[in-house]
Design a protein around this nucleic acid. Structure first.
Lengths: 192, 192
DNA sequence: TCGATTGTCTAGCGGTGCTAGGATCGAGTC
DNA sequence: GACTCGATCCTAGCACCGCTAGACAATCGA
């Protein structure tokens, strides 16, 4: 059985290589540059190999999105755990979210802008996505305010952050006032 | 000179036809279905004719975006002018914004999701875009609160609406709680 | 050692945005 | 009214896209 196990290991390793390469290429040159031909060339296999791992390009994007969601959850928890008090935690959370989006634009696109074929706000939503939302909720439910459902509050807060992240990155909002916008947002939304 | 004038009229008319057809096709079947071939076929001209009006597909998207921005400005002003008092105006504004995004998804995409080659938050931003932002600002500066720059407040409020609009439409947020989210957002952000 | 299975590649399908270059048509001139 | 010539438009084609059928080679179990 050892032969088969080795093959499975190699297959899994190659799958990780595909996802990592797709992500790298997307961060370097944008998702438009991530074509199946270029991706195949970079991993030094032919195109059809990609399709033995994923149904298509969409699923590759989805895989990058899941990886990104896991990382984002870690980053958010790291930022909030280093902060003292609810108010500071929320501010740190917002900054960490926007920072992640800014530093990993391609991953952020995979998660929230592109179609990775993932289910959201659903029972069969993949765990990493649920967990990223949970990471937001953990710091937000203490500032949701009386009589406000924490999940609903988190959705609104998240939407605001998402709007800031995307509009800023696409040049729709001037980047220099980001910090002031974060402060205003936290000031108003969070019930300290 | 009359011949030339007639030709210019016909050219302008054909250009409007291109934009209207692109928009119609996008609303019917999504922007992916708006290919230069299909578009050319629908207007009953050959592909290269499109390129005598626009540099490429991107510019066609941009033209749809400008048209949409003008319509959105009208819709927002109509909604707010029918409301009494600052608080009611802001609520009406938010509802109108989300309603527009929901009813014109392709146009909304052209404006804020796709690359239409338009400059934002810039001195050479096209007038319709500036005006749409102005329509937001008109109802929002009365609730920005003391010491808060109205433009900055408008940016944050807009970002929140944009986040709600996009995340809801892509199934990232369950649609049934939209009204409660709007109320929460207005409650917290607007200084009545 | 042989047949079967698995894995990979070459080649190609129908589609995309975009463009070069030839055909056609109509306006202005004699 | 015939003719010239420039504007206008179309046919054909480029390089690329996502994806797949089918040929081929390597490896496995008997």
């Amino acid at each position: 059985m050892s032969v088969q196990e080795r093959k499975e290991r190699e297959r899994a390793s190659r799958e990780r290589l595909i996802v990592a390469t797709a992500r790298e290429l997307a961060e370097q040159q944008g998702w438009d540059a991530v074509t199946t031909r270029r991706l195949a060339e970079r991993i030094e296999y032919s195109q059809p190999v990609l399709y033995s791992h994923f149904r298509g390009k969409r699923e590759i994007i989805g895989a990058v999105a899941l990886e990104g969601a896991a990382e984002m959850a870690v980053a958010l928890r790291a930022a909030t755990s280093a902060a003292d008090g609810p108010r500071a935690r929320v501010t740190a959370l917002a900054r960490a979210y926007l920072h992640f989006a800014e530093r990993n634009p391609a991953v952020y696109d995979a998660m929230f802008q592109l179609d990775g074929g993932l289910a959201f706000a659903h029972e069969d939503t993949p765990q990493p996505l649920k967990d990223a939302f949970a990471a937001l909720l953990e710091s937000l439910d203490e500032v949701a305010g009386d009589g406000v459902h924490p999940a609903l509050f988190t959705e609104v807060f998240w939407a605001a952050l998402h709007g800031l992240a995307t509009l800023t990155r696409e040049g729709r909002l001037p980047p220099e006032d980001t910090e002031r916008r974060v402060e205003l947002l936290v000031d108003r939304l969070a019930k300290v």
